[in-house]
């Protein structure tokens, strides 16, 4: 049994799943558009939350947030479900597949056998779409892979019931109703405003632009506070969160620029094109930041490529992004 599902490769799993699911119901929305309307862009440095003993840095919003806001803003109805019993989780999915409904699941990437070994970490926020079942297992549209992939029932079950931080607990979701008419411009404006608010106004030092500045200050302290080795591990972790896990480059900043460009076309607003260019430049700065960081990790940094040089880039990113979001806010108010 196989649903006729068009698989499009994307940079990021959640925005890719969202855009592919909508396309299945005749709504052609790009990944960048899904990411932008869903308000996916963010920054957070949370030193008290540790992943593999290293502090958590995030360049995107909470897991599930993109899909939730995107569908709400477009007026699409969604069904979410969590499970206690793995058997029930699998049979509920099978029933939906039999009805011809593609089912998205949240999974732990560690248990997905088709992942290249280098990517296999305990990471419980990986989204994919199941769109068929045959004698050998399930057919999966995993948005970060070029082609649909295949996964045995045993492995998919393990992945859906991965344990640890943010355990998916068998989470599955699918679309139940897609309206005929959608207010795309309205959804875009809401998406942008949401991100502006979160980046500019999230209280406390850890999140939004303040979070970037906070991380800059921490960077300068790391070598003395943690010692050379541990500090370089901290740097490596920040780079991985920025580049490794399907961000499309520059910690989602390039994907967001692509969204702003597309949004400019929809809203017929040329200023959005200019702001998109500024966002691209900010993304380029984030890339420079990662280059220096990787040299520090490899112990090949020149004297000028120091922790304080990285902190300076971070402050520059913070400054650029403050301007960008303030401009967006006044433009769309």
């Amino acid at each position: 049994m196989q649903i006729n599902f068009s698989h499009r490769q994307s940079a990021h799993c959640e925005s890719g799943v969202s855009s592919n699911l909508l396309l299945h119901y005749g709504v052609n929305i790009s990944e960048a558009m899904a990411f932008g309307i869903g308000g996916g862009l963010f920054f957070g440095y949370l030193p008290f939350l540790k992943v593999n003993k290293l502090p958590l840095t995030t360049y995107r919003c909470e897991v599930g947030g993109i899909f939730k806001r995107l569908t709400k803003r477009l007026g699409v109805d969604v069904h979410w479900q969590k499970f206690k019993d793995p058997e029930k989780a699998m049979s509920a999915m099978d029933r939906k597949l039999a009805e011809g409904v593609p089912v998205a699941c949240r999974t732990g990437a560690y248990w997905l056998p088709y992942f290249p070994p280098a990517f296999r970490f305990h990471f419980n926020m990986h989204n994919l779409v199941v769109f068929g079942k045959n004698g050998h297992g399930y057919l999966i549209s995993d948005p970060v892979f070029p082609e649909p992939v295949h996964c045995s029932e045993k492995d998919l079950l393990k992945a859906r019931f991965a344990e640890g931080p943010l355990a998916p607990k068998g989470t599955m979701y699918y679309l139940t109703r897609v309206p005929e008419q959608m207010d795309l411009p309205g959804a875009i404006v809401k998406g942008i405003k949401g991100v502006c608010r979160r980046m500019l106004k999230t209280p406390g030092p850890f999140m939004g632009i303040r979070g970037i500045r906070f991380l800059a200050n921490q960077f300068e302290k790391w070598p003395r506070k943690l010692g050379k080795r541990k500090a370089s591990l901290y740097v490596g972790q920040v780079i991985r969160m920025q580049e490794e896990i399907g961000t499309g480059g520059g910690g989602f900043r390039f994907m967001y620029s692509a969204f702003l460009q597309e949004a400019g076309g929809v809203l017929k607003e040329d200023r959005l094109m200019e702001i998109s260019e500024k966002m691209t430049s900010a993304g380029d700065r984030w890339r420079e930041f990662a280059v220096i960081g990787s040299r520090i990790c490899k112990n090949r940094a020149s004297p000028s490529e120091s922790y304080s040089a990285m902190a300076d880039i971070l402050r520059d990113c913070a400054k650029r992004e403050t301007e960008i979001f303030k401009e967006l806010w006044t433009l769309l108010r």
């Binding site: 490769q9 593999n52 970490f121 490596g236 991985r240 280059v291 990790c297 490899k298």
Partner: peptide
């Protein structure tokens, strides 16, 4: 903007090796 295919990036490879 277009979607371009990449085989990987050195800074990313380094950070992954470190992990």
């Amino acid at each position: 903007y277009i979607l371009a295919k990449s085989a990987g990036w050195e800074p990313k490879n380094i950070a992954n090796d470190q992990a």
